[in-house]
Design a protein around this nucleic acid. Structure first.
Length: 828
DNA sequence: GTAATAAATTTTTTT
DNA sequence: AATTTATTAC
């Protein structure tokens, strides 16, 4: 039992109180400072509402105070959802209805969990170390599994595999089955397994069709083999962290009953994003025998459901009242975040979706100085980055009313992570601070993963994946042949590879060289394992990296990134400091893939729309609103109308992140797979209301002229808002999809036609031309001939190798072979 | 077994 | 365009 003293308050927190004890009411007496106890007394006294309840609006207060029975809170963007959740927990604690450890609170991201802990701590006035069951589905799943691992056939030291490990493992299995790993990509099968697990399906439960669709109909066998392999490796993948607890609860009703008694209150954040497995998990824990109260509170917003591709079922939120009869449904519609214009734009956009529960956000704020949502156009993605950079610098100096803005209050939210790069490049040259949130992650770096593999293998000798990763890193002369031999040896005897290595060096199956190398490795690991219990883990970690020759490997590496990698390794050791043991650290890394950000730095945030959910910024930039990118073509192809609606919700999430200023951008040319493609404005732009949106001065370089055949969007016209809104531009866009969008994004059909070049009136008026223009002028004899030396503004010099009407095939010196319209090149 | 070179593949979103 | 993977030469 731990006792925590923070500041002046002396609050007892119970880590593990006697199993199902109910907190005594009235409050436990010790140290009646100004802490929980005192507040609880105040709470009991009806004449004075505790101060944490003050300032809530009536709906919020109802959501906080309705503690008995099921509650569904439909909370629109910016309506104080997190505040309700945290205050509700504080309320439960203050009124002594439960100990911290008797509250199960599930969030979607680790970030959200962290934030919630902080905010509860603020409300309750102490650290919340005593809330052991606040976390993501996955981290709570791990906690359950560590306690009961033997029930699902694992030992409590099991490892959690990341996607990379999983793919490598599956690849091995596919090869072991004698299948062609090219025809049956491991990555694809990993995706299928993930989908199945998200639906709560084990190998026996998957549909026959799914099974037939992979590996010559051996999908089911392969899935079963995979699960078997995980068991021998004593490992779990992400899906197992949900599936195993479900199976465990189903097979052991007594244990489930135990947790029923433990968890007096259950809270779930982002309920619209729960998938079937999470839903099953939750229902097992939340649905109680008849007569017992089901104190479950789910908070969500159907308009912000953006994880359908990960198996999320919006239906879960619609089904809540059926699952929990007598549930109270509370809508939060008062928005505290954004201006009227931003809310108006977002509302009008999301209204294009069908099948919504229908909330209308409103605000009292009405400031004539509020600016409308701005739509900007740029020629290409480089210019887009430049323009946004300028806008940011402008705001940094001072906005229209002379106010200076912090970079911390600005964010760029992109649809796909490849968009980030151009901004990074630009900001580096500008010397503008930026921060990539959720981008390439610290723990995914090569050197970090290598180091982690060493640590994993020391902590868990059965971790064959870790073994294979580092056995020849640094180079020890233990290549494919040796590893394969070890692999076979281990398989035959059903032992881990490290143990196999220990065995095999006693025999003379190996040639002397690899045998000696293997001997050294085995010796080292034996030594490190011996040190595990009695050496401080940071010291041991350093020792491992030193003695294994891993740090030397990078010290001897002359490449440019080597010093950075060494720095990262030092950072890794430093970050281990705050953990109790090496095992604890490994677990943290497996679940929390992001390293802490430097909060002190004033920097613009760059992130995907998905990772922006739940955040807010004064100024938000939304680049890349073009058909094919946003909405993403793949989403449209794979999920049709549902996909489009999810993309629209994503746009809604983007808009509603903004408090005061929102800038949307689209470009007419974007580079995809290294090829320049001309693009058309997103249909979502046409779904924004005129009253709240304003088109920023069209940059001259945006080719609005001479675009024969491409009148899809009102943003092609001089006055984009001139025509009626009843004819959404996207219908025309769809009609034209075969001409334009397909070719640009579908990637299956042939070549791309280059559409960049000079217009007649000089360098400033570049124009875009399309296929139609190309065809109409193709009858004229070309002014070029094969072998001509030509210059192109984007690709530089090259030789004409083929002529087809006015389309030239040119072998560029630097850019390779491209097809280009003859208007865009000139003879040198 | 290793290092250099050529070819293929990629980019939607994440616990 | 850039990164991962396969092939080839040493």
């Amino acid at each position: 039992m731990s006792r925590m003293t923070i500041g002046h308050d002396d609050i007892p927190f119970f880590d593990e109180e006697p199993e199902h004890a109910a907190p005594r009411r009235p409050a436990p007496a010790p140290g009646m400072g100004g802490g929980i106890a005192a507040r609880a007394m105040a709470a009991r006294d009806n004449s004075r509402r505790p101060d944490y309840l003050a300032g809530l609006n009536p709906e919020q207060a109802e959501a906080v105070e309705t503690l008995d029975g099921p509650v569904l809170v439909l909370a629109g963007a910016g309506t104080g959802k997190t505040r309700v959740l945290t205050t509700r927990i504080a309320h439960i604690l203050s009124t002594n209805r439960a100990f911290p450890s008797q509250i199960l609170a599930v969030t979607f991201t680790n970030k959200a969990a962290r934030e919630m802990k902080e905010r509860i701590a603020l409300l309750v006035g102490g650290a919340v170390e005593g809330m052991p069951w606040l976390g993501t589905f996955h981290s709570i799943g791990v906690k359950l599994l560590r306690r009961h691992s033997e029930l699902v056939g694992l030992s409590s030291s099991f490892t959690i595999l990341d996607t990379d490990d999983v793919v490598r493992l599956i690849k091995q299995l596919i090869q072991a089955e004698g299948l062609d790993d090219k025809r049956w990509p491991a990555k694809q099968f990993a995706g299928m397994i993930d989908t199945w697990k998200n639906k709560g399906l084990g190998p026996a439960d998957i549909p026959e069709g799914d099974s037939r669709a992979f590996a010559n109909g051996k999908g089911r066998e392969l899935y079963a083999a995979y699960q078997n392999r995980l068991k021998t490796l004593n490992a779990c993948d992400f899906g197992d962290l949900l599936l195993h607890p479900i199976n465990m609860f189903r097979q052991n009703p007594d244990i489930l009953k135990d947790y029923h008694q433990r968890f007096r209150y259950i809270l779930v954040d982002e309920y619209q994003d729960t998938n079937t497995a999470q839903y099953m998990w939750l229902r097992l824990l939340a649905q109680r025998p008849k007569g017992e109260l089901q104190n479950v509170c789910c908070v969500g917003d159907d308009d912000q459901s953006i994880y359908g591709w990960r198996g999320a079922e919006v239906d879960n939120i619609l089904r809540f009242e059926k699952d929990f009869p007598g549930a109270k449904v509370i809508k939060l519609e008062r928005n505290y975040r954004s201006t009227e214009h931003i809310l108006g734009a977002a509302a009008h956009l999301i209204a294009h979706n069908e099948g919504r529960l229908g909330k209308t956000l409103f605000t009292d704020r009405s400031d004539p100085n509020d600016i409308k949502v701005q739509v900007h156009a740029s020629w290409d993605s480089e210019e887009e980055a430049r323009a946004i950079g300028e806008e940011i610098e402008q705001l940094q100096r001072s906005d229209s009313s002379g106010v200076r803005h912090n970079l911390n209050d600005m964010a760029i939210l992109v649809r796909a992570s490849f968009q980030m790069r151009e901004f990074e490049d630009r900001f580096v040259t500008l010397g503008l601070n930026y921060r990539v949130v959720g981008g390439p992650r610290f723990y995914e770096r090569l050197e970090i993963r290598d180091a982690m593999a060493y640590f994993r293998l020391v902590c868990q000798p059965a971790d064959d994946l870790a073994f294979e990763r580092i056995i020849n890193t640094p180079k020890r002369g233990l290549g494919d042949t040796t590893v394969r031999a070890l692999h076979d040896y281990a398989r035959v005897r059903d032992i881990p590879m490290l143990a196999a290595a220990a065995d095999i060096i006693e025999t003379d199956e190996m040639k002397p060289k690899p045998r000696k190398a293997l001997f050294d490795v085995v010796q080292s690991f034996r030594r490190w394992q011996g040190l595990l219990e009695n050496t401080p883990h940071t010291e041991l970690a350093e020792q491992i990296l030193e003695e294994s020759g891993y740090t030397d490997m990078w010290k001897n590496d002359k490449s440019a990134e080597a010093p950075g990698r060494l720095e990262n390794l030092k950072e890794l050791i430093r970050s281990m400091d705050s953990f109790e043991s090496m095992r604890g650290f490994l677990e943290h890394v497996a679940l929390v893939m992001d390293a802490e950000q430097n909060e002190d730095l004033d920097a613009v945030s760059i992130m995907t729309l998905h990772s922006a959910k739940g955040l807010e910024f004064d100024t938000v930039f939304l680049p890349g609103w073009e058909e094919g990118l946003f909405p993403h073509q793949r989403s449209l192809d794979e999920s049709g109308r549902a996909g489009l609606e999810e993309e629209r919700r994503l746009a809604y999430v983007g808009l509603t992140r903004a408090k005061r200023r929102c800038h949307i951008w689209f470009v007419s040319n974007r580079r995809i797979h290294g090829l320049w493609q001309s693009t058309i404005p997103s249909r979502f732009l046409d779904e924004l209301p005129e009253t709240h949106v304003e088109v920023a001065e069209m940059e001259q370089s945006y080719g609005g002229y001479g675009r024969g055949g491409y009148g899809q969007s009102r943003f092609d016209k001089a006055d984009p808002f001139a025509n009626s809104y009843s004819t959404p531009g996207w219908k025309r866009a769809q009609a034209n999809k075969t001409d334009a969008t397909r070719d640009n994004w579908g990637s299956r059909s042939g070549h791309a036609v280059e559409r960049i070049g000079y217009g007649e009136s000089g360098p400033k008026t570049r124009t875009i031309d399309g296929e139609l223009v190309a065809k109409s002028t193709s009858t004229e004899p070309s002014r070029f001939s094969i072998g001509d030396r030509v210059f192109h503004i984007k690709f530089g010099n090259g030789n004409v190798s083929e002529i087809e009407g006015n389309k030239l095939t040119i072998d560029f010196d630097r850019a390779g072979q491209k097809r280009v319209l003859d208007g865009f090149v000139e003879r040198v």
